[in-house]
């Protein structure tokens, strides 16, 4: 079903990458993605490839889980490549009917494909090695300075972690209700658009009711346990940078320098 989407699917394993502070991973991922857009050259992408491969290796997550997230964007990737290839003006290479592939277009297409692919794989590495809870914890702590500007950082993080927590629950619920209605002869597949939309009612009504019921219960349970917002709330597992995080930041700096150097020195 919808479970093929890798982003947001934690892969439990015991690795250095898993143990890193979520803030380190967030900053690292962001820096990696930025570097893909800042240093546009084959040599730099070679460095990025080595770096990404190294991180994947260290994460102990099987490679096939990384590429699983790619399935969702294959179509987008294809469109990007095709448009860039044909619609970029420049020195013509091949001519197919009325369309011309230009040298610049081909290059742009290749760069775009690499960027998008690495972007998805890079963020998959983060989400596969970090539980949603750690991720929101990391964001909350990392963005805490914004509190001074009256940005409700804690509330936003709380909303996000609850939403993330509810995704698998609601997916499971959908599966269950769908099966239960199918046992009553419901048909979710055949028919035209209108018939299909109508057939969703027996699924959506119970799903909404259950979502509201769960939200209500959760709010009740939180209040019963004295939740009163972020003010003065302490953490069960407070985030502290460790030695390995310092090492990771150092590696990141080396990586960025290598990217810069590769683009500057190699020059292709």
């Amino acid at each position: 079903m919808i479970r093929d989407i890798t982003i947001g699917q934690y892969y439990p394993a015991d690795s250095v990458i898993h143990r890193l502070d979520p803030r380190t991973k967030l900053v690292g991922t962001l820096a990696f993605i930025l570097s893909l857009f800042l240093f546009r050259s084959y040599a730099a992408y070679l460095v990025a490839t080595v770096f990404l491969a190294g991180v994947i290796r260290a994460s102990k997550v099987p490679f096939k889980f990384m590429v699983r997230g790619m399935k969702a964007i294959v179509f987008l990737l294809l469109i990007t490549v095709v448009f860039n290839m044909f619609l970029t003006p420049g020195e013509p290479l091949v001519r197919i009917w009325k369309l011309t592939v230009t040298r610049e277009g081909l290059e742009l297409a290749i760069f775009m494909a690499i960027r998008l692919t690495y972007l998805i794989i890079g963020s998959s590495v983060m989400t596969l090695t970090t539980t949603p809870n750690q991720l929101t914890d990391g964001m909350e702590k990392g963005l805490r300075p914004l509190n001074k500007l009256h940005v409700p950082v804690h509330e936003m993080a709380m909303i996000m972690s609850i939403a993330l927590r509810f995704i698998p629950i609601l997916l499971e619920e959908t599966d269950k209700i769908m099966k239960a209605q199918m046992a009553r002869g419901a048909d979710f597949e055949s028919g035209g658009v209108i018939k299909k939309a109508k057939s969703m009612v027996p699924l959506l009504v119970p799903l909404f009711i259950s979502a509201f019921r769960r939200a209500n219960d959760l709010a009740m349970a939180m209040e019963a346990r004295g939740y009163h917002g972020g003010e003065g709330r302490t953490k069960m597992k407070p985030l502290h940078y460790q030695k390995r995080d310092r090492a990771a930041y150092l590696t990141l700096v080396v990586y960025l320098l290598a990217m810069y150097g590769a683009k500057r020195i190699a020059g292709f």
Binding site: K179, R184, P206, S210
Partner: peptide, 14 residues
Amino acid sequence: RSRVGLVFQYPEYQ
């Protein structure tokens, strides 16, 4: 499915 009727757990939720 019509000949083998299956009542799920907590069927009231459907």
